[in-house]
Structure formats: structure tokens, C-alpha cells
Design a protein around this nucleic acid. Structure first.
Length: 438
RNA sequence: GGGGGUGUAGUGUAGCGGCCUAACACGCUGCCCUGUCAAGGCAGAGAUCGCGGGUUCAAAUCCCGUCAUCCCCGCCA
């Protein structure tokens, strides 16, 4: 007897309400527990795991190795002895692909039980992402990115894509990866900075981009990647830089609430607490931050905050304002790129900011120079040649509005929320000083 | 670019001059088990201790070099 609905696959998460029905499940063998003629298989698909029971099919059951891809047909039955009170009584088993050899890492045990070096996890990345704990971090990152898009679209921002192969070292500062571009040398973009500004000037006014950026820095730390996903936006006709931080505040609130809604399981796995994004995230001037650190923590920082200073400042913000977030503003000009807008009252400072979250910088942004002559002068004052920036400068000649924007590091944001000890854990296939594969 | 740490079965660790013929846990193989759920019981396989050199009667263990890797600082998201 054929039942037409049986051709359809049932997701593991939808099994529970189907008591009494026959279902067709597909997924991976998470665990196998043999008890003589009774075999329990925990089947895992992208939605979760469910217990399946196999009786008297010992020969076939023996082929069910862990991590085999399988298809099972059976009847959903209620049983108080089963986890979650429901299991699947298996009638048909199809092995779709059996493992060639035992996997080098165990997918079915908690990480704190089995232990695993990050190196091992990354060496076997596609496999390690199967591990529910490991893969969850990337689910959260994906939802962050989705929410970033959704919120900005709702505010009239247009999603754009800018070139990743560029002609010149755009911002200076960080080192660039050179690539062979036919007969010329080109570079991988360290940021969409110039192009997103140009698109504001192009009349779109508000643009955002989700894309990779490349930094050829030889840093080897838990918070740096040589390729990461930058969440950028840039907006025109602003009154002052506070308009940018206001948008980010609302954006972050939306993003965190979205993750809270869509990732309860993942947040539970990491015991991550959703931060409350305050109505107004405190703004602290850099010079004030430095004095606070000196007076309250006897911590000496010069010119900028070092990683320890960032942590202490966040402790201070938590204590004083009860928030994990703090904007650090008014960085000196010499510490900011040539396009950073000088402050009206003190031109040695800029209308720029960083956002710290739980002790780590997750955003840099600011108001940009929109006046053509001022920008040319700023370029010159850095010992650079405006001619090299003609492609960028042109639109500034024709009515460039006051504007500004920022960038959020997607991996850092994710790592901070989930308390990951290393940003690499928030990247599908991280690129670092030594890792180019997988 | 500067500094520190670590390399021992597939995985995670212990051992840090002789008792190491290298141990433990998980995984793997075989057998037993009809309620397992970090299953249990019995039996077994699997490591020239990253690599090269040196010291020593004796090296996984000490020294030098090398490679790999992790972390910190600078810089940054």
C-alpha cells in the first residue's frame, strides 16, 4: 500500500506532533546505541535530533555508523521512555552514504567533555561545523547579517556591492594584499569606504553593504582575521555624527532582538545573555575615557585605548550606566584616516567614534569630510597625492552632502555575544596568518 | 614587526632523566544485552612521543636547531 504523503520528507523538528503517522526522515546518524536486538539511533538533520528505534533488523542496523547519511521511514509513536516522549519506530532504512573512515572529530559529544583544539576544529572545518555547538555560532552570525539588512532596508538604505579588487591602497594604514590584475598590480579592498561614500554622492543617499574585506596584517590574535565580513553603512545629509550613532543604536537593538527570536537554541548552547541595548548608548570622549582610566583604574593609555583599556572602560560603563556598550568619540586626527571630519571646536580632533561591546571594539565610524577643498587639503597634509584619488574625489566636486557611516565586524559582534574565546570560531572558513585551507 | 607558550595513538590529555615493553578517557574492531539517552559488560587493534642533531651508561623527559601551532603586544573590525 502506497501512501502519497510518504514521499515527502519530514523535518526532525516537526516529528513530535505527528504521533501515529508514518514519516520519512533524512539526516545523519548522530549516535547509535545497540542493545541486543534493539537499536536506538539518534537522527540529526538541520533542525535537530530525534530518537529512532530499530527492532529486529540487526544486519541493516549494523551498517548505521555514526555520521552516515541516511533515510529512515517509520511511524511516530509516543513513549515516555523516549527523550522528549516521542520516537520513530523504524520500518525502512536506506544508507545514502556511509563514512569511509571514522571521523577525526566527534560530533555527538559536548565540547567540554571531549575537548578539541581550535586547530583541529579548523583543520576539519566542514565536519566540525556539523557539531551542534560549533555550527551554532555561524547560525547566529547569519541571523545578525539578515537583521542588519532588514533594519537598514526599513530605514531607506539601499544594499550595494562595491569592488573587492581595487587599484590603490585606499585608506592607508593597514597593509594590502596585492593581486595580479592582467598586466597591473591590484589590491584586495581593505574596506568599501571610498565606494560607499561615492554611492551616497551618487544620489542613493543611504547605502549599506555586507561583504568581505581584506587586511594583510601579520597579526596573530584571538580578535583578528585577514578576511572578515564587514557590515557597512553610509548615510547622507546628516546634521552631525550623532545621527550615525543613533542609527547604530536602533540597528543593534533590532539585530539583537532578531537573534533572540530566531536563535533560542543557539543562545542556550552558549549560555549567551542578550544585552539590553539602551535607548541611548553612552558617548565618552577619548580624552575623558583616558582620564577615567587613569583616575579610576590607574591605567595609563596614551593617544588611544589598548585592549586592556577597552575592557576597563566597558567595566566602567557597566558600573556607571548599566550597559555593555559605549561609544568612544573624538579621536585625534592623526589617528584617523584623511577623510575623517575635523571637529568644529577643536580641529585637532575628529567627529569619529568607536563602539566597544563587552570590552572589544566592534565598530569604527564617523562623519566624513564632504567639502572638496578640505578633502584635497587633508589628503595633501598626509603627504598623499590628490591625483591618486581622482576617481574618489570627483563626486565631491558636485554637491557632496554632509555624510558619515560606520562598519561593524560581523565575526567580532558574534564572538562577543556568544563569549567565543576566538573570532575564528565565528567564521566559516577563517583566513589568518597561516591558514589558507580549508 | 616584537615577545611568550605548546607539539605524546583518530581526538583530548598524563608522564618531564632509569620503575615507559609509553598510561588514561573518548573514538574504532569483535562478542553479549529489548529501553538506551555522556548507555553497560567482556575481548582487542592503534604512537618509532613533530623533525634533525647533541649531552648521557641511559632521552618522550635535558640542550641546540628546525618546522608546526597557540597566545600576548603593536595595528585594527
Amino acid at each position: 500500500m502506497t501512501q502519497p504523503q510518504m514521499r515527502e520528507r519530514t523535518w526532525v523538528q516537526d516529528v513530535k506532533p505527528k504521533v501515529g503517522e508514518r514519516v520519512r526522515l533524512k539526516g545523519w546518524v548522530h549516535t547509535v546505541r545497540e542493545l541486543g536486538k534493539l537499536v536506538f539511533v539518534l537522527l540529526r538533520d538541520r533542525t535537530g535530533t530525534v530518537q529512532c528505534k530499530i527492532k529486529g533488523q540487526k544486519e541493516i542496523a549494523k551498517q548505521l555508523e555514526e555520521e552516515a547519511a541516511v533515510e529512515l521511514v517509520g511511524t511516530v509513536v509516543e513513549d515516555p521512555r523516549a527523550p522528549d516522549g516521542v520516537e520513530v519506530d523504524v520500518e525502512e532504512i536506506r544508507i545514502l552514504a556511509k563514512p569511509v573512515e571514522p571521523p577525526p572529530i566527534q560530533i555527538n559529544r559536548p565540547l567540554d567533555v571531549i575537548g578539541m583544539r581550535l586547530e583541529t576544529i579548523l583543520n576539519h572545518r566542514a565536519l566540525s561545523l556539523r557539531h551542534p555547538e560549533i555550527g551554532s555560532a555561524l547560525k547566529v552570525r547569519s541571523e545578525f547579517i539578515w537583521a542588519f539588512r532588514e533594519y537598514l532596508r526599513s530605514q531607506g538604505f539601499l544594499e550595494v556591492q562595491t569592488p573587492k579588487i581595487v587599484a590603490a591602497g585606499t585608506e592607508g594604514g593597514t597593509a594590502l594584499f596585492a593581486v595580479q590584475y592582467f598586466e597591473r598590480t591590484a589590491y584586495l579592498a581593505q574596506s568599501p569606504q571610498f565606494y560607499k561614500q561615492m554611492l551616497v554622492g551618487a544620489g542613493y543617499e543611504r547605502v549599506f553593504e555586507v561583504g568581505p574585506v581584506y587586511r594583510a596584517e601579520e597579526h596573530n590574535t584571538t580578535r583578528h582575521l585577514n578576511e572578515y565580513i564587514s557590515l557597512d553603512y553610509e548615510m547622507g545629509f546628516i546634521d552631525d555624527f550623532r545621527e550615525i550613532t543613533r542609527v547604530e543604536t536602533e540597528l543593534l537593538r533590532f539585530m539583537f532582538e532578531h537573534v533572540e527570536r530566531t536563535c533560542p537554541r543557539e543562545l542556550e548552547i552558549y549560555k549567551a545573555e542578550l544585552p539590553k541595548v539602551p535607548k541611548e548608548i553612552p558617548h565618552v570622549r577619548l580624552d575623558e575615557a583616558i582620564s577615567v582610566l587613569r583616575e579610576k583604574y590607574h591605567k595609563h593609555c596614551e593617544g588611544d585605548l589598548d585592549p586592556e583599556g577597552e575592557k576597563l572602560l566597558c567595566e566602567y560603563a557597566k558600573e556607571r550606566w548599566g550597559t555593555e556598550f559605549v561609544f568612544v568619540t573624538h579621536y585625534p586626527r592623526e589617528h584617523r584616516p584623511m577623510y575623517a571630519m575635523p571637529n568644529e571646536e577643536d580641529p585637532s580632533l575628529t567627529n569619529s567614534f568607536d563602539l566597544l561591546y563587552k570590552g572589544l571594539e566592534i565598530t569604527t565610524g564617523g562623519q566624513r569630510i564632504h567639502d572638496y577643498h578640505m578633502l584635497v587639503e587633508s589628503i595633501r597634509s598626509r603627504g598623499l597625492d590628490p591625483q591618486d584619488f581622482e576617481f574618489y574625489l570627483e563626486i565631491f566636486k558636485y554637491g557632496m552632502p554632509p555624510h558619515g557611516g560606520l562598519a561593524i565586524g560581523a565575526e567580532r559582534l558574534t564572538a562577543q555575544l556568544l563569549n567565543l574565546p576566538n573570532v575564528r570560531q565565528a567564521s566559516f572558513f577563517p583566513r589568518d596568518r597561516t591558514r589558507l585551507v580549508p
